[in-house]
Design a protein around this nucleic acid. Structure first.
Length: 248
DNA sequence: TTCCATGTTCCGCA
DNA sequence: TTGCGGAACATGGA
């Protein structure tokens, strides 16, 4: 279930469990998770190394492995599992790292939309993939956000989903952000007042910091904020829930 | 059996 | 040029 807040949690989990242990063995259970990276190169470059620090940008995790960076993207169903007892290995483990102290870290991903590969430089990766600012970046402010939004057109939902504008929001937290801000997901950004753009920014920040889920994802439910009716629609190609009464 | 799914990317069209 | 719909990727759950 990975959007930015979950990936942040995975990053902390990785850091808590898998740093400073020597990688004794790298087992690629399903090569499709590696994308373009070749399996033998992946194994060869990581074996014997140690993960030393974790970085996150949007939904991407980068782990420094002494000269090369492990890059993780969790797709729709990616997750991490750290364990000592091999019977705890997840059913859909795609890559497993065995550490020299007998512990294991698995990247699991049922649907295989995730990616596990190696890159040389996270900043170059972020630039090459046109990833926008990270909402948790303390140097990213409401004025910066407004300037970015003013260069865009189209539905506010589509804009917030775009990883090139802001990196890290997905379908759920975009819906939550607009629900809390009281803005209809179909509203085009040209029609948003500066104060509304600012409010979207502040709400987005609050939600990725403390990811509350308040919007019911079911058509016809009562809105917990105003008692209105929750509607289901397709916006920006994704299933969207919103309150027909207070989101204008 | 059919539909749906918290992501990304690519193609074609407007 | 930008945005969007639709498809594709792969798989399980309701």
């Amino acid at each position: 279930m990975p959007e930015l807040p979950e990936v942040e949690t995975y990053g902390r989990y990785f850091a808590r469990h898998a740093l400073k242990r020597r990688i004794e063995r790298v087992d690629v259970r399903d090569e499709r998770i590696l994308g373009e990276t070749r399996k033998d190169a992946f194994v060869r470059r990581l074996r014997g190394r140690t993960f030393t620090r974790v970085r996150r940008h949007g939904k991407h995790l980068f782990i420094d492995a002494e000269g090369v960076w492990l890059h993780l993207h969790f797709g729709m169903t990616g997750d991490l599992a750290f364990y000592r007892d091999v019977r705890k290995e997840p059913r859909f483990a795609r890559v497993v790292f065995d550490f020299d102290d007998g512990s294991h870290l698995a990247f699991e991903d049922m649907r295989l939309f995730g990616v596990v590969d190696l890159i040389d430089d996270p900043d170059a990766f972020i630039a090459a993939h046109r990833l926008g600012r990270d909402p948790l970046d303390s140097k990213f402010g409401a004025d910066d956000f407004r300037e970015l939004v003013r260069k865009r057109r189209g539905a506010i939902k589509a804009q917030l989903m775009s990883q090139a504008l802001v990196a890290g929001l997905g379908n759920l937290y975009v819906d939550e952000t607009l629900y809390e801000t009281g803005i209809n997901p179909k509203r085009s950004v040209e029609k948003l007042k500066d104060a509304e753009v600012r409010a979207v920014f502040e709400t987005m920040r609050k939600i990725v910091r403390k990811p509350d889920r308040r919007l019911p994802r079911e058509q016809g439910e009562r809105c917990p904020k105003c008692g209105g009716t929750i509607k289901r629609a397709v916006v920006a190609g994704r299933t969207t829930y919103f309150c027909a009464q207070h989101q204008k």
